[in-house]
Simulated scan of single mutants.
Amino acid sequence: MIEVKSLVKKFGSKAALDGISFTIEAGSVFGLVGSNGAGKSTLLRSLAGIYQPESGEILVDGLKPFENSTVKSKLFFISDYPYFFAQSNMKEMADFYSKTYPTWDAQRYEELCTLFPLDQNARIINMSKGMQRQVALINALSVRPDYLLLDEIFDGLDPVMRQLLKKLVSSEVSERGMSVIIASHNLRELEDLCDHVGLMHKGGVVFEQELDALKLGIHRVQAIFKPMPLQEALQDLDIIKQDTRGSLVNFVIRGKREDILEKLNALNPVFTELLPLTLEEVFISEMEVAGYDIENILK
């Protein structure tokens, strides 16, 4: 389990993380989303024990990660720009990690090398960004970590490799109970993989919630009504957003699907339909409620 309690991390006078708190249960896949500069990468580096917080604390299985080799042996962090030794190839990096992590699985490494079409003797610095991420993933999964921290891991991967990544990570989570924290702008990919999501903005957490509960608790509705004082008729509904195009009224409504349909049908609409929301639409709606300028978020 990872526990983040009132965490503050500053660079100079600027707070990159401003008193954030949340818990990530073991065996979960937690997605971090937010605008550039929201604090996602800083949070991942703090979880990995690279940054020491000014105040608050991080606990990984009850222990602080900063300068703690016991904690660091349990986790693997792939940054937005994965680090490799200068002029090294895959075999040399694998040799390094095999000596660094007691959980290194040589058989797993060979299996993964057959899945990713990479030349193990080629210098990593000459590889594309996507190929370098594949090398980092092979090393990470061969370590068999309890906690895998990924920063913009989908960037540079083609559709086939993205699907392979999701399959491999899901397998590790289901079979070993590995916990995964992914920071990404790619909400579509997170929607397929994560069971929990957290929205960060300006160093804080706007909200964090189980993905299914989040999506089931908010709905997009299209309806046509007979002439009536509509606002008065709909006052019992928790309407987040509403706009009218001709006779068609579009809503975003928070609540249970059954309760919403019951209240709408009581008004004898000419037409009504509940439509599924994407993860991005859910986040935009929640941010509007929280009063954030969505034009500068999730670009």
Rank of each mutant, 00 (worst) to 15 (best):
E3Q: 15
V4N: 02
S6I: 04
K10M: 09
S13H: 13
A16P: 11
L17H: 08
I24R: 00
E25W: 06
E25M: 05
S28T: 15
S28L: 04
G31T: 10
G31D: 03
L32Y: 07
V33M: 10
S35F: 04
G37H: 07
A38W: 11
K40M: 06
L44D: 03
L47V: 02
A48C: 08
Q52I: 02
Q52R: 14
Q52W: 01
P53R: 08
S55W: 01
L59C: 01
V60Y: 11
D61Q: 13
P65N: 06
F66G: 07
T70Q: 12
T70E: 12
F77I: 06
I78C: 09
S79P: 03
D80H: 14
F84M: 05
M93V: 10
Y97N: 09
Y109W: 06
E110G: 03
T114L: 13
T114H: 14
L118N: 08
D119L: 03
I125P: 00
I125H: 12
N126T: 12
R133I: 00
I138A: 01
N139S: 00
S142I: 00
Y147A: 03
Y147P: 03
D155M: 03
D155N: 11
P159S: 06
V160W: 06
L165G: 06
K166P: 07
K167T: 15
S171A: 13
E175Y: 04
G177F: 13
H185R: 09
L190D: 11
L193H: 00
L193T: 09
D195G: 13
G198A: 14
K215N: 04
I224T: 13
P229T: 08
L230V: 13
L230P: 10
Q231N: 14
D236T: 14
L237K: 08
L237C: 11
I239Q: 06
T244A: 14
S247W: 05
V249C: 07
I253M: 02
I253S: 05
I253R: 08
D259Y: 03
I260D: 03
E262I: 04
L264N: 06
N265V: 02
A266R: 10
E273P: 04
L277V: 11
F283V: 15
F283G: 11
V289I: 13
A290N: 10
G291N: 12
I297S: 10
